[in-house]
């Protein structure tokens, strides 16, 4: 998932200086998950913009599973709102940068409508964890090193991205030199290797990372796209259903903490 947060309102309004008519568009992917592009967020943004005197021509809400970053899905919603898109001064997209760029490219190149498309959110990276606390653990570098580092990515989790650490700046409590709230990834790697009985490997040099695997922009092609039937099949599976049921009845983290105390 791509974590994201909304930009400060001043920055959003800065983009809209001298512009009056806007389209506010959400995203049914990660942005819905992080409350930065779901129906509620779209409505709230539209309200704020109206309060600032802007005219919201339409609000495009994409339901869960309908991501702005997928051209096929995104296009359905843009085509449906073609006249608003044509008449607006700017499209405010409440998604990560991928969504914003798919909207830009599709409206410009496929619909033939060149409009200002502005980001409402700041993307914060690929994160894992949850339900409320997440951390960036992978940067999609194109050459996974986890097999050499006991399952902890030093390129992402070490503040300096060192393939050979720790650096000399480890703080009290095995915290990072740059930010005392973060754990030192290399101490974590050491502890994992210790548990796995492979400390000998800790003393061996890791080669420099092969950044040639990350020539931007990276292009990627699937032989067969995921169709609706594949999606249904993936969802209507017994394990999936039992997984959703467990999540449904799971206590929220705060309640769980309380229950533990009792």
């Amino acid at each position: 998932m791509i974590a994201q947060e909304q930009k400060p309102m001043e920055e959003i309004l800065g983009y809209l200086e001298g512009k009056q008519k806007v389209v506010v568009m959400g995203c049914g992917g990660c942005a819905t998950f992080y409350h930065t592009g779901d129906k509620k967020a779209v409505n709230e943004m539209a309200e704020k913009l109206e309060k600032e005197g802007k005219e919201v021509l339409t609000k495009i809400v994409m339901p869960l599973g309908m991501q702005a970053c997928e051209t096929e899905k995104c296009s359905i919603f843009l085509q449906k709102n073609r006249s608003a898109v044509e008449n607006c001064d700017a499209i405010m997209v409440m998604s990560c940068g991928d969504g914003v760029q798919v909207v830009t490219e599709y409206t410009d190149e496929e619909m033939g409508i060149a409009k200002e498309v502005y980001p409402v959110n700041d993307p914060l990276g690929l994160v894992g964890g949850g339900p409320t606390k997440f951390k960036e653990t992978c940067q999609s570098c194109g050459m996974c090193e986890l097999g050499k580092t006991a399952g902890v990515c030093p390129l992402t989790s070490c503040g300096k991205g060192l393939m050979n650490g720790p650096c000399g700046g480890v703080r009290e409590g095995d915290k990072c030199e740059i930010d005392p709230d973060k754990d030192c990834a290399w101490v974590k790697i050491y502890k994992r290797m210790e548990k796995l009985g492979k400390l000998d490997a800790f003393e061996q040099m890791n080669d420099p990372h092969e950044w040639s695997k990350m020539k931007r922009p990276r292009l990627f092609e699937l032989e067969k796209p995921m169709g609706m039937m594949d999606m249904m099949g993936a969802m209507m599976n017994l394990n999936t259903i039992s997984g959703y049921m467990s999540m449904m009845f799971a206590k929220p983290p705060a309640e769980e903490e309380e229950a533990k105390k009792e």
Partner: peptide
């Protein structure tokens, strides 16, 4: 370089050993 006062000495020494091997 080596950091004798590192918060986690064993990990630091492991890294120093890596420099020696290099």
């Amino acid at each position: 370089a080596a950091a004798p006062g590192a918060a986690h000495l064993k990990a630091e020494v492991g890294k120093v050993q890596r420099k020696i091997n290099a």
